[in-house]
Nucleic acid binder design. Structure first.
Length: 586
RNA sequence: GGCCCCGUAGCUCAGUCGGAUAGAGCACAGGAUUCCUAAUCCUGGGGUCGCAGGUUCAAAUCCUGCCGGGGUCACCA
C-alpha cells in the first residue's frame, strides 16, 4: 500500500465531511492537494497542504481551514497527533501500530512489496533503448543508455504498466554498406589475399576478421570474382546478422534482453516509409522547399540550396521543417524513424519512451513532432537523453583509444568491474547530467562505493538471519513466521525510523516510474542502507539495541522481523535495478 | 547565431507535478570495534541555490533576460 495515497483519500473524505456539515463551501477542487512526508521528520510522519490549496476557492484563511480539518484528522485511529504549522500545513504523526502493520505487510508480501497497479490505466508503453548501429560491438558509451532503458522498463512494470522493450536495428543506409565492404576485405584476407591496409572510411576493427573467416568457411570463394552488386547484399546480411548476435550477447552480459527487435531495412522493404510519407502528404504536412544553411557558423563546403521534401515539423513545435529525402532520392534516417514510431503506434503503444545519447539532442523535437503528427495526438513520446560518461581510473581520465589498448567495448567494462556494478553505478546520477565512472572506485569496498554500501547492508541482514537460529534456539526466521512476531516490541525511534523509510518504497516506485527517473531507486536504496547501518552501530554503543538478545527471545524475534524486512526491501529495489543481492561479502 | 542539457557546501551530487530553518557523501576535526569485520557508525564547522527581474499566500523548483560549462545544427546515423 502507498500510505500517502491512502491518507490523501482520507483527507479528501474529511473535507467532504466538512462540506456536508456546512463548515466548508461545496465544489472545492482537491486535485492540487498533496499528502507527503514533511521535509523535516521532526514535523511528523505525513503532512498535507490541503488548507493552503483550499484557502482561496473557499474564501477562508488557511489556518482556519487547517484547524477544522486537523480536528477531523486527529480523530482517525491511525493518527496520534496533529499540528498546524507554518502557513497552514497539517502535520500528522501516525501510531506505532500503523508502522508495525506496514512491517508485517512487507514480510507477507516479500519482494513484491512496492508492486502497484498505478500504471494500469496508462495504456501500453514501449521503451526503445540502445538501438546502436550494428557496425561493431557495443562501446562503453552505450552502457548508460542500456542500463537506464532496462531499469526504467523494470520500474514501469513494477508500477503496473504494460511494458514492451525494443531495439531498433539501423540496418539500412550507407553505414551498413560500408560495414559490408569492410567485412568483404576480411573475407578476401581469409581466402589468402594480402590486404595491406584497411582504406580510410572503412571499419578497420579486428572484430571483422572472424566474420570474414566465417563467410569464407560458409561460402568458399563464391563471392570472390563477382560484381559488388552481386556479393554486397549477401555480405551485408551476413555481417549485420553476426554483429547483432554479438550485440545481443553483450547486452545479455549486462542482463538485458529486449522483447522486440525491429529492422529498419524490413520496415523500408515492407513499404512502411512510403505509406507514412503518403499519409503525411495527404494531410498537407509535406511540401517542397529550400532550407537555409545554418547561421552563425561557416556554411558547409558542399552546401547547395536545393528543393527537397520537407515535413512541417514547425507545426508541431520544432524549430525548422525537416527533410525526408536525401539528394539521391532515398529516405532520410528521420523518415525511416517516423515509420518506426508509426509502426509502434499501430502495434498499440500510446506511450513511447526513447533512450538516446546526448549527441542526439537536436533530434528530439522533430521526433516528438513526428509522433504527434502520425498519431494525430493520440500517442506520447518521451525522450530521455543520457549524458556522456567519462571513464576514469583513480581520478585520471582514461583515453579510450584502441591503439593504447584501453577499454573500448562494453564487454571490456563488464569484464573489468562486473555486471552488477555497471548497472548500479550508471544510476548514481540523474541521466541528464554528465558523470564520471571511476574503474578503481567501482570495485572498491568502501562508503565511497554505493553498490558496495547497499550490498553490505543486505549481507549484514542475511548474516544475522543465518546465525539467529543457532543463538536463539532454532528460531524460525522465515518471513511468514516472523510476520507473526510481537512487533509492538519494536519501540525504539531508530527502529521505527527504519520501518518508515521502508514503508515509503511503494511511493518511490510510483513516483520514479511516473517521472521516468530510475536513478531514484538507487538513491532510495542508499537511504535504506544508511538507516540500517546506523541502527546496526547503535547496538555497539548500547547492547540492548542489538538484534539478537539471547535472554529475551520475543524481542529478538521482533527484531529479526525488522532485519528480514530490510533484506526484503533491499532485494526488491535491487531487483528493479537488475542487480543480484549478495548473501555475504567475505 | 538557433536549439537542448547542466550551474546547489572546498569537491561529487540529491532535492517530491512550487511548500516550513535547502540535504547527503567525500574532504577536514574529534570520537565509537562481542551480531559481517572501523569495509561501518556518531558528533562538528561549512551556502548570495550562477546573476537580475517577474508570477503568488509560498520559488533551488515556474516565466523572461543575461553570464559560465557541455552537446548539437540540410543530405550521416
Amino acid at each position: 500500500m502507498n500510505l500517502f495515497q491512502h491518507f490523501q483519500a482520507e483527507v479528501t473524505r474529511q473535507i467532504d465531511a466538512l462540506i456536508a456539515e456546512g463548515a466548508l463551501p461545496a465544489g472545492l477542487d482537491t486535485t492540487r492537494l498533496t499528502v507527503e512526508p514533511p521535509r523535516d521528520t521532526s514535523h511528523g510522519d505525513i503532512t498535507t497542504n490541503a488548507a493552503m490549496v483550499l484557502a482561496k476557492p473557499a474564501g477562508m484563511k488557511p489556518r482556519d481551514i487547517a484547524d477544522l480539518l486537523a480536528a477531523k484528522l486527529d480523530a482517525l485511529p491511525e493518527v496520534t497527533e496533529t499540528t498546524v504549522a507554518g502557513p497552514g500545513f497539517i502535520n500528522m504523526r501516525l501510531a506505532d501500530d500503523f508502522w508495525h502493520a506496514r512491517l508485517a505487510e512487507i514480510l507477507t508480501t516479500g519482494t513484491a512489496y512496492g508492486d502497484s497497479d498505478f500504471g494500469k490505466a496508462a495504456g501500453k508503453v514501449n521503451v526503445e533503448y540502445v538501438s546502436a548501429n550494428p557496425t561493431g560491438p557495443l562501446h562503453v558509451a552505450h552502457a548508460r543508455g542500456a542500463v537506464v532503458g532496462d531499469v526504467l522498463a523494470r520500474l514501469l512494470k513494477k508500477a503496473g504498466y504494460d511494458v514492451t522493450t525494443e531495439y531498433y536495428i539501423n540496418d539500412a543506409g550507407a553505414q551498413v554498406e560500408t560495414l559490408a565492404r569492410s567485412a568483404y576485405l576480411r573475407y578476401r584476407e581469409a581466402l589468402g589475399e594480402t590486404v595491406d591496409e584497411i582504406p580510410e572510411g572503412m571499419y578497420p576493427g579486428e572484430y571483422l576478421i572472424p566474420v570474414g573467416q566465417a563467410l569464407a568457411e560458409a561460402d568458399g570463394d563464391k563471392w570472390l570474382n563477382v560484381d559488388e552488386d552481386t556479393w554486397l547484399p549477401h555480405v551485408r546480411e551476413f555481417t549485420v546478422a553476426r554483429m547483432m548476435t554479438q550485440v545481443k550477447e553483450d547486452l545479455a552480459a549486462l542482463g538485458i534482453q529486449q522483447d522486440v527487435y525491429t529492422s529498419e531495412k524490413e520496415l523500408v522493404a515492407a513499404g512502411a516509409v512510403d505509406a507514412v510519407y503518403q499519409t503525411l502528404a495527404d494531410r498537407g504536412l509535406i511540401y517542397t522547399g529550400v532550407l537555409e544553411p545554418p547561421k552563425g557558423k561557416p556554411t558547409p563546403d558542399d552546401w547547395e540550396p536545393r528543393p527537397q521534401s520537407l515535413f512541417r515539423a514547425t507545426e508541431f513545435g520544432d524549430d525548422i521543417d525537416r527533410p525526408l529525402k536525401k539528394s539521391d532520392g532515398s529516405w532520410t534516417y528521420f523518415s525511416n524513424d517516423i515509420a518506426n514510431h508509426l509502426d509502434k503506434f499501430k502495434r498499440g503503444f500510446t506511450q513511447m519512451i526513447d533512450i538516446f545519447g546526448a549527441d542526439h539532442g537536436g533530434y528530439v523535437k522533430r521526433m516528438k513532432a513526428a509522433v504527434t503528427a502520425v498519431s494525430e495526438g493520440k500517442a506520447e513520446l518521451d525522450i530521455k537523453l543520457c549524458q556522456m560518461v567519462h571513464l576514469m581510473k583513480n581520478g585520471e581520465p582514461m583515453r579510450m583509444s584502441k591503439r593504447a589498448g584501453n577499454f573500448v567495448t562494453l564487454r571490456d567494462l563488464i569484464d573489468e568491474v562486473g555486471r552488477d556494478v555497471v548497472r548500479f553505478l550508471m544510476l548514481t546520477r540523474k541521466s541528464d547530467t554528465q558523470m564520471e565512472f571511476d574503474l578503481a572506485k567501482a570495485v572498491e569496498q568502501s562508503r565511497d562505493n554505493p553498490v558496495f554500501y547497499v550490498q553490505y547492508a543486505h549481507a549484514r541482514c542475511r548474516s544475522v538471519l543465518r546465525s539467529a537460529p543457532d543463538e536463539l534456539a532454532g528460531l524460525d526466521t522465515s518471513a511468514e513466521a516472523l510476520a507473526q512476531a510481537d512487533l509492538s516490541l519494536l519501540a525504539d525511534p531508530a527502529e521505527l525510523d527504519l520501518v518508515k523509510i521502508m514503508a515509503a518504497w511503494p511511493r518511490i516506485v510510483e513516483q520514479a516510474a511516473e517521472a521516468h527517473e530510475p536513478h531514484r531507486v538507487a538513491f532510495y536504496l542508499n537511504d535504506v542502507a544508511s538507516a540500517f547501518h546506523g541502527l546496526w552501530n547503535m547496538g555497539k554503543d548500547d547492547t540492548s539495541l542489538r538484534f539478537i538478545q539471547t535472554d529475551t527471545p520475543e524481542i529478538s524475534r521482533a527484531r529479526m522481523a525488522l532485519v528480514q524486512a530490510t533484506a526484503t526491501i533491499i532485494a526488491s529495489g535491487l531487483d528493479v535495478l537488475g542487480v543480484t543481492p549478495v548473501e555475504e561479502l567475505r
